[in-house]
Amino acid sequence: MSDVTSPEKESPAETLDATIVVPVVERFDDLEQLYLDFSAAVARVTDSFEFIFVVDASQVNALPVLKKMVQSYSGIRVYGFNGYFGEATALDAGFARARGRFVFTLASYYQVVPEAFETVYRALMNRSDLVVSRRHPRVDSSFNRAQSGTFHYLSYLLSGYRFHDVSCGFRGMRRELTQEIPLYGDLHRFLAALAMKRGYRVTEVAAPQHPQDARTRIHRIADYAHRLLDLMNLFFLMKFTKRPLRFFGAIGSSITAVGFALCAYLTVLRLFYGQALADRPLLVLGTVLLVAGIQTVAIGLIGEIIVYTHARESRDYHIEAVFPESAQDKAAASAAADKGI
């Protein structure tokens, strides 16, 4: 009944129009009803589609119903993790097995109304590589809107890209995009920003919020801390992945400068005013800052060496087309693409 497949295996060929990947990670509603509602919406646009459910070990309760669904409907595949890997990895596992020309992601609970599928699909047809949706109009509590508004404004400040609802799990994209952008940790929230940085055309469309999604969400403290870390990660990924020393150097050199100034001040006091330093904690502070600053710069240097070492495998540009096309160029371009992470 269950069998372990390796993630390294070749991506399957494109044989369908659409693959809908549903990561079952945080919570789930009635999955069968969800499947019926959304497959009806998809069927209005295309007949050739499949659903892939990826179940994290934290949601094993979803497995019985999914097993039943595999037996009763065709065009459903269900994969599961034996460990806790989170949403980004679940999406990644789904992407690796998708057979559709377009890949959609869908939350395992009602976030948006099923009719939104058509909006996203049309936007995707209209020269977009990635379509993200925002729950709009919202039927939510104002508390939810305030906390999500703050988060998005901060991520706009840090990344320079303006999106309104990164937590909305309903997105559509071309398959090549899923193969090019690595998803890990909590990066799925920033898929749109990562795609834009790589030159993909990203559009955001409004999808009416599902009434069932309208609950006041007060998260655990740890979740807020995670979101804060996500923001910092986004900032770093957008600006400094290629030049870590610019980041660490700016921080480190300013800390060192303060430490140096303190030490210099104390030295002047000692030499010209004869003040004893033995009982001044300021000396310890100055030294700590000096040392911490130098260590920060040193970490930046390590970063530079890592980037240089791996520069051959990564690349910052993305080729869309070569003209006139020759087999050789295609091979070179795809070889270059394979080397990219």
């Binding site: 993630p7 993790f81 034996n82 990644d92």
Partner: peptide, 9 residues
Amino acid sequence: RSDHLVFEE
């Protein structure tokens, strides 16, 4: 791509 193991129903 990553280090997770997957089983299929």
